[in-house]
Structure formats: C-alpha cells, structure tokens
C-alpha cells in the first residue's frame, strides 16, 4: 500500500468565477505521509484545499485528482468524504440546532454506513475531547455556534480524530490560535499521525504548528503555482528567510522552481 500513492494530483488548475487561481498543480501523497503546503497570503493555498474537497464554488479547469485509486475530479464533496478525505476548515461554519456530538455521530454513520454503538462512541468522543482539552459540554452545544476561534479549530481536529480519514487536509488550523491552543491542536494531529496510515496535507503560512510534527515533504505555493518542493528542512529555511526569494521571481512568466 505504501508504494501506491493515496492522492495523485496531476496538472490541476482551478478557478473561482472564471478567475484562474491554481495552475498546473502536481502533487503526490502516499499513505502515512505528512506534507506541508506553505506560501504567502493569497497564493491559493486554501483554494487547493477547497478544490481537493470539491467545493462547488471552485471549478476544476484542467487536470485530475485520483484518490485511493479512484478518479474523484468530478465527485461531490460527500463522495470524497466517504472515500476517506477530510478538510479542516479555516473558518468552520456555525450550524444552529445541531449539537457537535450528534453531528459527528451523524457523519460517522453516513461515512461508515454502520450503526453507531452509542456507549463506545461516547467513550471515544470523551477521550478525544480530553486530549484536546475540550470541556465535555461542547458535545451538547450547537455546532460551532458561539465557539471561540480556538474552540472551532479544536472541534475540527476532534472531527478528524473521530472520523479517522485516510487523508486530512488542514487549512490554516493554527491561524488565530494562542500558543497553548496551537500546542493542543498539534497534539491532536500527532495522535492522528500515530494511527495506521493516516496522511496529512497541512496548509499553513506559519511554522509554529509544525514544530512538534514529523514532516516528510514541504511544498511552496506562489501565485497558484507550486514553485518548489523539499523535505521537512525547507520549513526551517522558510522560517528563517520567509517567502521572499520565491515571491521575487513572480515577475517572470512561467518562473521555474528554484533549486
């Protein structure tokens, strides 16, 4: 399994309302790997997350997405979720009248098609919430309604842990969090990494969240192009020097990735 790629993105381009955002993205993620996608604001990082998850607002204008052996380029988001893809939202939506606990149970049931064993589910949920230092009462609160920024992000990681996807895409999960919350969220991500072959695509423009995580590959996205790919050490380099040298080359059309 580890030889075969879990996600195979080939020549992917996408647009929002006829405005091209992503250009010819190639990305391969194998089971169990952790990839980091970095880049300055407005580079198209979130667009890549949305396009992979199938947000209908983002139209694929070229290329393909193969996930777990299936071409999902034109599949709806729920099919992708059922295939094992997960997106942690940068700004999780508030849904009044549905509790966080029953929502996760619902989603779990949808994805597995199996009836949820209530006691076992509750125990599992309590453990995961404990790990994320979330008060148990959040399970009974309406999904994200009135949650602080940090609580919303924790709730996303909680969903990831409970739904246990094959690939989790984390879109700016660290943005707007204080130091303690980043550490907690990072703990949740490590827990997911420990599980069998879970793969990660972590979208971030800071490096705090990566400090305690093992990273296999780092990609830098600028103006909708992946301009360079390296190993985990690239994170360190960007941490020191920023994106300046990648951004500077934007003037030349078709700028080739730097060495």
């Amino acid at each position: 399994m580890s030889e075969q790629s879990l996600l195979q993105v080939s020549g992917l381009s996408s647009a929002v309302e006829d405005l091209p955002i992503l250009h010819d993205i190639n990305l391969t993620i194998k089971a169990g790997e952790t990839h980091v996608l970095m880049g300055p604001n407005g580079a198209g990082k979130s667009t890549l997350g949305y396009t992979l998850m199938g947000n209908p607002h983002y139209k694929v204008t070229g290329g393909s997405i193969i996930f777990d052996g299936q071409d999902i380029t034109n599949d709806s988001p729920d099919k992708r979720a059922k295939a094992g893809m997960f997106l942690s939202f940068q700004n999780p939506l508030e849904v009044p009248g549905i509790s966080l606990g029953s929502f996760i149970r619902n989603a779990y049931h949808e994805q597995t098609g199996k009836p949820v064993k209530l006691l076992q589910y509750k125990k599992q949920l309590a453990e995961a919430m404990d790990l994320l230092t979330m008060d148990g009462s959040y399970a009974d609160r309406d999904l994200n309604v009135g949650f602080s920024g940090g609580e919303k992000k924790k709730a996303e990681i909680l969903q990831m842990l409970m739904l246990n996807p094959k690939l989790a895409i984390l879109d700016e999960t660290d943005s707007g969090l204080d130091v303690d919350a980043v550490r907690t969220v990072s703990k949740g991500i490590q827990e997911y990494q420990k599980k069998k072959d879970g793969a990660l695509l972590i979208i971030t423009h800071s490096t705090k969240i990566l400090e305690a995580l093992h990273v296999d590959y780092t990609h830098v996205l600028v103006k909708g192009h992946i301009v360079t790919t390296g190993d985990g050490s690239l994170v360190e380099e960007i941490n020191e020097h920023g994106f300046e040298k990648y951004v500077r080359c934007e003037g030349c059309d078709g700028c080739s990735p730097l060495k």
């Binding site: 998850m53 199938g54 947000n55 209908p56 607002h57 709806s76 988001p77 729920d78 992708r80 979720a81 059922k82 997960f86 997106l87 939202f89 999780p92 939506l93 508030e94 849904v95 929502f103 619902n106 989603a107 949808e110 994805q111 969903q159 739904l163």
Partner: peptide
C-alpha cells in the same frame, strides 16, 4: 452554500 459544503465535506448528501 458554504454551510451546505461544510456538512457535505463530512459525508452528508446535499
């Protein structure tokens, strides 16, 4: 639409 997408991304049909 964003809320619908959010719920769909967790496996619910539209």
């Amino acid at each position: 639409d964003e809320a619908v997408f959010y719920l769909m991304s967790r496996g619910l049909s539209e």
